[in-house]
Nucleic acid binder design. Structure first.
Lengths: 230, 230
DNA sequence: CGGTGGCTTGACTGGTCTCAATAGATGTGG
DNA sequence: CCACATCTATTGAGACCAGTCAAGCCACCG
């Protein structure tokens, strides 16, 4: 575990990115690699917030729920994203692995101390947090004001942006890391509505659904028109 | 304008709060007081983000809209809150006055420079941004998973927390700074649905609506039960 | 093979939206 | 001070989108 930073897969894209080697020393000693199986939860909403982390590989969901069990996924995290909530004793959301996941985990308190001592680290976290806030607010427009069709189209474009592989004839393909139930929890819909909207997009020739989790975008422009929002 | 900080109404609660007097010098020279009339917009989504500010008095809304004009209010700002988006060339949301408003405005670029030179200022902004992100995510649960009745109950409790004056018999009263249309834009509903839910709450004895904009909460506990979420 | 979990599809329900009329509040000018 | 216009809020009737309930399909796996 001695030199985990020097072999880090996402070092240049994570918040550690612009730290000098001596600055990295602190984090190097703090960080521990950790694997999560698909479905495993890093921490639950309401729990004491013990850890922060950088996501090395895989996809995480951030979610909250009502007392009676309705769930809302409020964010998705991809490799190089920062995970956790510094400066809060209690986590307000749960963080759970959607795929197998590799993390570089820091105990929260020492990480907060590192933030205080390394202004550059703090600055990068601030920029990321501001960007995350913009993204959250964009998603509020989706949840509050878009129709089921628009939501699904926007979701597929978003996923393509993160996971898409260019394939034949300008089309884009990817494997969804989420079940229909999880997509529904992202979009504020039900499984059935998500499924119906997807088949409608397929019938209209905008996408292909070769198998359950695979998606091919055949007509990106058409999808964008259905997604609509500014 | 020489000593605007020393007379500041919200100095101890804003991000300037824990700065020493010499540190305040920079901001003191940067800041300009500005008034906005009800309905005036500080900046529009898509515009170059020219200013940041501290809100001294009044209430602001942060909002986005779809291309065809559907609006979603994604945040409300109260006195001592920070306004604006450092480190972005273009604003992603509009900021508009819901009441008459007083601001302490900073040009964005020099303010960013001040952030870089004053770690404490940056730290406080980071904490606020993290809190704003938590709040935005809580609101995503509301938008995606709560019913009209739950949304309106939660909204009234939230407003009471910010504006409520204790009055007779443990009841709480306040004047809504938003029209029904604006409440609808906060909750992802229509004017009519908001109005119907409010009258239902009145008929059930949980609130009183003495006049259009005034609200009295008669049974806070009952309201909380209707608001439901975790 | 049968069981399980994820996905699709259908029929029906219902909550919220839409459209429309009315009532109340506010402000202006005669 | 009143008539009038304008803006905001309430209320009703009906339509429609998305939810609910239920059945069946498919892939995977013991």
């Amino acid at each position: 575990m001695t030199q985990i930073c020097s072999e880090c897969q996402v070092r240049d894209r994570s918040i550690c990115g612009s730290l000098s080697d001596p600055e990295l020393e602190t984090l190097n000693h703090l960080g521990r690699n950790r694997r999560l199986e698909k479905g495993e939860t890093l921490f639950w909403a309401g729990e004491e917030a013990v850890v922060c982390a950088n996501l090395l590989s895989g996809v995480l969901k951030i979610s909250t729920a009502t007392a009676d069990g309705r769930e809302q996924i409020v964010g998705l995290l991809y490799p190089s994203d920062f995970v956790g909530r510094p400066f809060a004793e209690e986590a307000e959301q749960s963080v759970t692995a959607l795929t197998e996941v590799e993390l570089c985990v820091f105990p929260r308190k020492p990480f907060e101390a590192a933030l205080e001592h390394h202004a550059r680290l703090e600055r990068l976290l601030l920029r990321r947090t501001l960007a995350a806030l913009d993204e959250a607010r964009a998603r509020m427009l989706l949840l509050g004001r878009m129709t089921a069709g628009e939501k699904v189209a926007a979701f597929l474009l978003d996923m393509a942006g993160h996971l898409g592989q260019r394939c034949a004839a300008g089309a884009t393909t990817f494997d969804l890391p989420l079940t229909r139930a999880e997509i529904a929890d992202v979009l504020g819909l039900t499984i059935e509505t998500v499924s119906r909207q997807m088949t409608k997009l397929r019938q209209d020739g905008l996408i292909d659904l070769p198998s359950g989790r695979q998606v091919t975008i055949r007509d990106r422009h058409g999808l964008q028109e259905r997604a609509e929002a500014a």
